[in-house]
Amino acid sequence: MRRLPANFLLGAVLVSLVVGVAALSLIWTPHDPQTMSISTKFAPPSAEHWLGTDQLGRDVVAQLMAAARNSMTVALVAVLLGGSIGVALGLLASALGGWVEDGVMRLADLGFAFPALLFAIMLAAVFGPSLTNAVLAISFINIPIFARVTRASANQIWTRDYVAAARAAGRGRFAISRDHILPNIAAAIIVQATIEFAVAILAEAALSYLGLGAQPPASSWGRMLSEAQTLMYLAPQLAIYPGLCIVVAVLGFGLLGDGLRDITDPRLARAR
């Protein structure tokens, strides 16, 4: 058994930590994250409030935990939604080739002209800012990314002998895509999904910070930071914790993705 790469191990530890905390928040948080108590605002860390309280007396740990859950949910939905559309488009492009492939790839190019923030801005201008719009915007930018990765990997598999054999046996392009292509490119897609998960967490935080994502009273690391920014003379510590949480989560998924790629594609690992 080969030793697992260090980035994979560290990434796995960090991801388990974040996901574990997010899961735990479903059943337990030290306090209710939304309960305000003006009498205990800006409380320092104590046995009661491990990291103290914010300007409205809300427990910081409870908020961070609830925010972790929101962050994971947003990233999961965005990557699943954008990813599955992208993978479907990529498979389609690869299976049909010709003008369909060209068309899909041109569309993907077009998608790259819109960073998530621009898309979120348009949606917010039209529908008003909301977490749903943020999720849609992040999903949208995932489509071209997954479409490209899928098409590139799928095109390689289409040249394999067993695919040729399946075609000779009269199987249709879609059946082959489902039974032969998809299972063989799953690893590449999972690697990409892990990395995009990290990107999505970062995007959600930025959008929420800018007011285009999570709206009060929903907890979000990004929103906590934008509130903390106005209080940095009074309570600078409030601007530290949410940022650290973002870094841990993004770093975790990023390392995990790199590690997974090293494991599934040793050729690439050596080249780096």
Binding site: A206, M232, G243, V250
Partner: peptide
């Protein structure tokens, strides 16, 4: 690796807290 994980707006806040505040 760390820099990729740090959001620009958080880094900004930290820089402001250190160099301005």
């Amino acid at each position: 690796q760390l820099g990729i994980a740090v959001p620009a707006f958080w880094l900004s806040i930290l820089l402001v807290m250190l160099f301005a505040v």
